[in-house]
Design a protein around this nucleic acid. Sequence first.
DNA 1: ATTATAAATGAACAACTGTTAATTTAACCT
DNA 2: AGGTTAAATTAACAGTTGTTCATTTATAAT
Lengths: 205, 205
Amino acid sequence: MSENMANKKTIGTKQKILKVSSTLFSEYGYKATSVRKIASEVGIRESALYNHFKNKEEIFLCVAKEIFTTPFSQNDSDIKESALKGKAFLQKFAMQYKLLTFDKNNENMFRLLMIELFQNKELREQFMNEFHNENIKVLSEAFFIMMQNSLIRSADPMMVAYEFLSTLFYIRLQITLLRFDSGSTTNLSTQFEKHVEFFWESIRV
Amino acid sequence: MSENMANKKTIGTKQKILKVSSTLFSEYGYKATSVRKIASEVGIRESALYNHFKNKEEIFLCVAKEIFTTPFSQNDSDIKESALKGKAFLQKFAMQYKLLTFDKNNENMFRLLMIELFQNKELREQFMNEFHNENIKVLSEAFFIMMQNSLIRSADPMMVAYEFLSTLFYIRLQITLLRFDSGSTTNLSTQFEKHVEFFWESIRV
DNA sequence: ATTATAAATGAACAACTGTTAATTTAACCT
DNA sequence: AGGTTAAATTAACAGTTGTTCATTTATAAT
């Protein structure tokens, strides 16, 4: 019971530190975010941070770990099934991508990723693996199945996956940029759907 | 004569400062690059920098100005002519994009752009205007002409331009990331050509 | 009530930041 | 040779950085 309560309180401020840090890091980047700024927004002195984290970098690593917790993951049997639906699969995939783009938390994480991409080697590798390769894998499996069932014209599935994914990424980057300056994204928000339409017309047999 | 020589010397170190700064900024970003580091790599004391630039920001702005000096720019008559060649136009465009990607100086500038994209509003706007809109304009004009001449299937030219450009950007980002870690880009270097091939098959009538 | 433990505080540290001032060095023109 | 001027140096500033340490405060268990 003692541990429970103690933990509860600890986790309370610890979580608060992570939340505040996440916001600050994703706005100003690692270097420009000072431990004093974090502490002041949490409501404690900077020395109190060190009761919860070894140092600034540990805080950052904890925040960065959340970047790649993709909320949607499809297992292989799912893919096999939905890939048979052809266009509907692409629509679903693009819609999930769109949801991530407009989700407040994911938006912050994406911005943090972009800011620190060239500063942090580990982040770079994770970007390649979990952001790129993972999506390419899912997509190319789906395109392969579509080709087998003659839903789309035959080509290198990985190539097709690359083409489909790259535009999604570019749309997301542009939207994130616009929203960072509180700009309107009404024009771009339908881009995901338009992309699927265009792409399907490009590959369907 | 006096002014000439004096200027020559001034421009000598001034240029050297810009060159060194460009390298450092594009590796560590603005905040993490100190004036002392710049000065030491130039071979002077940090106070001597202020004989050439008002402050650190002015150095950065001078460096940043070079980001968008696109070495290739096509005027309207050029576009009209080469667009009629259809696929060849896309190949030429992609090849120029590829050259920029692998050009040492442009590579640094691109990295700097990515690093500071979410830190500098002016850079963000310039990215949108000169990096995105400018290319979209050229491409959509070309696609429009191709549609008029029934070289490609009819669609919204800007939409098609967007689709074509986004993949080029994504390839460039990936190559720049790999090269930053001295990774091999042999797989990706042919991606530009593959993209054109795939895309042309997607739109040709 | 006493004790044990975790969390927060205030103060200080050494290192680093961008920038300024006074001064010296070096190159050029007359 | 003397004078002018730009460019470099040395030294210092005030502020910020991440981090540590001794101390106090608060919480929960015995």
